[in-house]
Design a protein around this nucleic acid. Sequence first.
DNA 1: GCCTGGCACCCTCGCCCTCGGAGTGCCAAC
DNA 2: GTTGGCACTCCGAGGGCGAGGGTGCCAGGC
Lengths: 388, 388
Amino acid sequence: MAERREPAAHAAIRAAAAEAAADAVHVEMSLPTGGPVSTVMEAPDETDEELDERKRTVLRAIVSEYVARGEPVGSKRVVEVAGLDVSAATVRNEMSALESLGYITQPHTSAGRIPTDKGYRRFVDDLRADPALDGPRRELVQELLGGAADVEDLLARTSSVLSQLTRLVSLVIAPAGDASRLKLCELVALSPGGALLLLVADTGRVEKRSVELPAGTTDADLDRVRTVLGEHVRGRRLDDVHAAVETIVDDAPSDLRDILRAVANATASGLTQDTVHHVFVGGQASLAGDEAFERQQLSRVLQLIEERATLARLLAEATAGDRPTVRIGEENKVEDLRSASLVAQRYQLVAAGSLGVLGPTRMDYATVLATVRAVADQLHETLTDLSS
Amino acid sequence: MAERREPAAHAAIRAAAAEAAADAVHVEMSLPTGGPVSTVMEAPDETDEELDERKRTVLRAIVSEYVARGEPVGSKRVVEVAGLDVSAATVRNEMSALESLGYITQPHTSAGRIPTDKGYRRFVDDLRADPALDGPRRELVQELLGGAADVEDLLARTSSVLSQLTRLVSLVIAPAGDASRLKLCELVALSPGGALLLLVADTGRVEKRSVELPAGTTDADLDRVRTVLGEHVRGRRLDDVHAAVETIVDDAPSDLRDILRAVANATASGLTQDTVHHVFVGGQASLAGDEAFERQQLSRVLQLIEERATLARLLAEATAGDRPTVRIGEENKVEDLRSASLVAQRYQLVAAGSLGVLGPTRMDYATVLATVRAVADQLHETLTDLSS
DNA sequence: GCCTGGCACCCTCGCCCTCGGAGTGCCAAC
DNA sequence: GTTGGCACTCCGAGGGCGAGGGTGCCAGGC
């Protein structure tokens, strides 16, 4: 019930992750964008492509170089970094073509190029051979998520790990209540006119709702209601609870009806829907430190983050399949995210929750994708262990 | 249990507060710093003072002008704004004196003056006639805090109101568990080896703890433990729970001992201490939008905010008496808050919680103090209503 | 037909300089 | 003690200049 409990492991991760992240920019994660070594030409011809292999190489070089350095990258640097065996002039032609195709753009005439959203998109799509997270960090994730006490704690840790490894804002939403079953339904009298309805799911999730009791409710009444509720509600799915209570109301003895009605009201504010608000966020400070964001954009994004409902909806929408999803800049429907990218993934097949990170469009997609994926996998695994 | 539930009223407050805040800078809150009207001289002589009345007036003018405009303020402007009946040259002399006393400083030679931390401190101390929050906003606070369903919700709203009205980061920590009594103690089996311990206080606070059950624990065992716990723990203060459980362990039938031991372990991680983590934060976006913070400072402060434990400790420490406390810049022991100020107040006399706001040293102390105070009072009142 | 070196051109950025404005400190006079 | 006056300082905006980096294009070569 704490807003976000800080797992004991945080101190540990901070040290570890800082170390790991220190070289994050330079470690190229065995991607073909790296040093002059890899002029990879996997399939010699894919003729129907808009971009031939060399253009793609150039684009890759521009994206990764721009992400790393933050400055527009010129033809000369592309040659160096992509290890192409052609002259800068040739690359210039390619770049010119890439520009008219909308993949890159110039901040001003006679400056280097920077990727457009479309360029990032293409870059990300070309990463289809999903890069794996490197060993040390993979182990770190495993270690930190392994020792969680309950689901709540686990998700908090997950959020922490994600943000520390990516240095972006991490988002984790709990699995939807659909599949979880109600273990306990309690009604606790707090003050004369008010009680607290407690719903506990088998995942360890606890929902509480205030119930306004009708005047004159006695403890005995409450006992009876408790029994009735216990009988009819236990074992149900969370999103069934409201309906279940509604049906009881009518069948109940008339003197309990008012109380049950109050309980029904309390459960009305959709238990499923409410899951949405149950979102863990971490790493907002890193976002503030990121030079890639303008002051105003930063403020907007932070504001959006504070509106948990919107945020959760976004995240849920973004995670359709079971592979990581990337929403780049303008691809985000939300105005405030125009200059941001979201990398997200579902993490459970049934009753899926979602997790992801949010950062400037200028982010290291390869590493981020690898991290999100690894964390989601590990979370999935730990969850499975935990519930068995 | 949602990280922070967004009260339905948020949309409403957003509109209302925006309106209210729009003129916040110019409305001078009936302080004697305002227009040329008020050359207030309350007590004609307080001779032992380091600062005579005129110096104080000058200081007041500098502080409020600097806060409002964000630029160093010169002697000429002081004359205008403070409505002093002397020439700029005279004011310059006073300013020179104020500077050598350490109340104000020059960003560079031949620029206007800006307040030092000491200057702000003095300004705040001179506000002893606590300014009251103006009518409309006072009503807004009342309205928004009045309709809270339970304590949790109330505190979330409080945090929201505070940050919206001040446009700073708001902090609210829940009342310490000391005085609240345990209403319910439940043990719910979730998986074969694990259970969930639920503690419900009469304030509506719910604590949950994972309990690792010894192998071979049966449902019947759990029932018995539940009964034992119920008998001995109910009605206790939250911070007594652990001790209470400990004593039961020894007296219990040997076959229950292991389970009770596990329960005792679960309650060990101080229930009082843990309260500390229960902190509501709002308005981080406003902080990012505030020009008064450098990028790096901003990041540091945000980072500190993410460490809930430190934050809560700070807030708790800062709120000693029952009047608002102000910690300005260097007065904060924490390195990362060197360029920030904290305005905080306790909000209940018994089992006090704390609330406050955090922002750049260059903040409108008068308004902020008034707001913090009004919100604390209202919160206190609503809490009293709620628990009666 | 594609690649390349060369070249003219463009734009930014840092630098310097200048100039106006704002503010100060000091002084002599009231 | 206060004041107007004055010289001085410093910042910041604006303009000019040169260097650097980048481009686009072209003509020639493979």
